[in-house]
Each structure stands twice: as structure tokens, then as C-alpha cells.
């Protein structure tokens, strides 16, 4: 590098340190609110704030009572069960329909690609309140409101864009000649699809499915409008808890949800790296 005048060096350094400071402050802003919840969920008092005893690490100020609350409360248990049921079924539908469509969409022969893409991705963009209101009007005509089927259909639609995005992304680096090489070496189209394309999109399918699951698992607006008492989900339960009676049980649930997100995040990171390796890309893209 060319020698810079000394006053540049000073400004350069200042710039460097203030950038570093700024970046770390933003990182703290991102992560601290989430971390704060975890110790608070072990609070022995029914408050959302640190007690004196917690700060001095007095073991009596910590307790598992709020976790115990979840396990002994029928409504929470039902919500957990419902969240998984709705999440799993909508993930299956979204993944199957999404994978087929993504393969079609990444074909160079796909007609009206741009318009179709725009439609398929729109559930991600249209505000949930509009989706929820519309579904309430429409689904009640088919007796789908207040039913598991209705929620599964709704959540599938919301999860589909994520499946499409992740799979088309894995296919974007895919070297099509591999597929044709398979064809020309005598394999049937189906055979070469299963042998060549499937292994490549598999990480995309799995991460798309995870996105679809978490979308359903976290969704609350549609649930607010469509679900009856029998279909309450975790976020729905949290929503009404936060509106009505603020209670550290919610913090305990939140902590468990954070643990789930960490697991998902790590899995995805592993998948992404593997996908990059498979597609011959290096490191971070």
C-alpha cells in the first residue's frame, strides 16, 4: 500500500475504531434483548425485572417455578401440541408443493417465470392482517375457520415462498450439463433426476422445510383470526398472555423457543456449508 500522510493515518484509525465501536453496539442491540430473557425466566418473583437477589446471585432468587407452570398448565400443553401438529402438516404440504414448483421454476423452459414467481412469493409480502382478514371471510364459507385443516392450509401458503427461495437458490448454481450428462449416458429422465438433482437440492429442501416450519410455528395473526379455543398455538397463547396478564411463564416459554431457534440456526448453517461444498462454491457467498 502507498504511504499515506500521517494525518490520514489518524483519521483512518479514528474511523476504524468508531466503526468497530458502532458495529459492536449494533450487535449488542441485536442480541442483548434476547439474552436478557433467559435469566429473567428463572426469576423466583413474578416480575419481568431483575431483583436484588438475582444480581447478587443469591440462589433463592432463582427458581424453576415458571417452567413448572408450563408443564402443569393444560392450556400451555395443548398449545405446544397444536403448534407442532399445525407446523408439521403445513411443512409437509409446503415442502412437497414448493419443491415440485421450484424444480419447474428453475427450468430454463419455464414460461411466465417472472409473473409466476411474483405470485408465489407474494404470501411473504402481503401483510398478515390482510391475509388473516381475507382468510376469515373466505374460509368460514367452507367451514375451515376454527379447524386444524384451515390453519394447516393457511400456514402452508405462508411457508411456500421460503421453500421456493431456498430451493431455487440451491438450484441456481447447479450445472445443468450434469443432468444432461446423465441423460446422454443413457439414464432415464427420472433416474437422472433422482440421482443427480435430488442430492443437490436436498439441503435446500431441508432448509426450506425448516423455514416453512418456523413460519408456521411463529405465526400468530392468522391464528388469532382463524383458530378456536381448541386450536390455540404457542404464539397465540403468548399473545394473549402479553395482552392480559404478564407473567414470567411467558419468559420461560420464550427461553425454550430461543433454544429451538439456536438448534435450527446451527442445523441450517451446517446444511448451507454442505450445500456450498456440493455445488462447488467455497466459503460464504
Amino acid at each position: 500500500m502507498t504511504q499515506l500522510p500521517s494525518y490520514y493515518k489518524f483519521w483512518h484509525k479514528l474511523g476504524h475504531y468508531s466503526l468497530k465501536f458502532g458495529a459492536w453496539s449494533v450487535l449488542f442491540f441485536l442480541i442483548l434483548p434476547i439474552l436478557v430473557i433467559i435469566p429473567l425466566s428463572f426469576n423466583a418473583e413474578p416480575f419481568f425485572s431483575f431483583t436484588r437477589g438475582m444480581v447478587t446471585l443469591d440462589p433463592d432468587s432463582y427458581s424453576l417455578r415458571w417452567y413448572n407452570n408450563i408443564v402443569t398448565n393444560d392450556n400451555w400443553l395443548l398449545a405446544v401440541k397444536n403448534s407442532f401438529i399445525i407446523g408439521i402438516f403445513s411443512t409437509i404440504i409446503a415442502t412437497i408443493l414448493g419443491t415440485l414448483a421450484a424444480v419447474g421454476l428453475s427450468s430454463q423452459y419455464m414460461p411466465f417465470k417472472r409473473v409466476i414467481m411474483l405470485i408465489i412469493l407474494s404470501p411473504m409480502i402481503v401483510p398478515l392482517i390482510i391475509v388473516a382478514a381475507g382468510m376469515f371471510f373466505f374460509y368460514t364459507k367452507f367451514n375451515l375457520a376454527g379447524s386444524f385443516a384451515g390453519l394447516v392450509i393457511a400456514h402452508s401458503a405462508l411457508g411456500i415462498p421460503f421453500v421456493i427461495i431456498t430451493i431455487t437458490a440451491t438450484l441456481s448454481g447447479f450445472d445443468r450439463t450434469l443432468y444432461f450428462a446423465g441423460l446422454s449416458s443413457g439414464a432415464s429422465p427420472v433416474r437422472s433426476f433422482v440421482d443427480i438433482v435430488v442430492p443437490i437440492i436436498r439441503p435446500g429442501v431441508i432448509s426450506g422445510a425448516m423455514f416453512a416450519f418456523i413460519t408456521s410455528f411463529d405465526e400468530v395473526v392468522v391464528v388469532l383470526f382463524l383458530a378456536g379455543p381448541g386450536q390455540r398455538t404457542i404464539p397465540r397463547q403468548m399473545f394473549s398472555g402479553l395482552r392480559e396478564q404478564i407473567n414470567p411463564t411467558i419468559l420461560a416459554v420464550a427461553t425454550l423457543l430461543i433454544a429451538i431457534s439456536v438448534i435450527f440456526l446451527v442445523t441450517l448453517e451446517v446444511l448451507r456449508q454442505r450445500s456450498n461444498r456440493l455445488r462447488g462454491l467455497e466459503g460464504h457467498n
Binding site: 407442532f84 408439521i88 436436498r202
Partner: peptide, 30 residues
């Protein structure tokens, strides 16, 4: 592998659904 995951997932969710169904059917919402 995918198929296995899907199968396992459906199995798990049916298992969860089974006791639930009986529960939802005759419960009164108060």
C-alpha cells in the same frame, strides 16, 4: 432420506393427533 423424514414426521404428528382428537371432540369451550 427426505421420505424418511416426512414419514417420521407424519407418524409423530399422528401419534400426537390421536389422543388429541378424542380430547377436542367432547370438550366444552368455556
Amino acid at each position: 432420506m427426505n421420505k424418511k423424514i416426512i414419514l417420521a414426521a407424519s407418524a409423530v404428528s399422528f401419534m400426537m393427533l390421536a389422543p388429541f382428537k378424542g380430547f377436542a371432540a367432547d370438550s366444552l369451550n368455556v
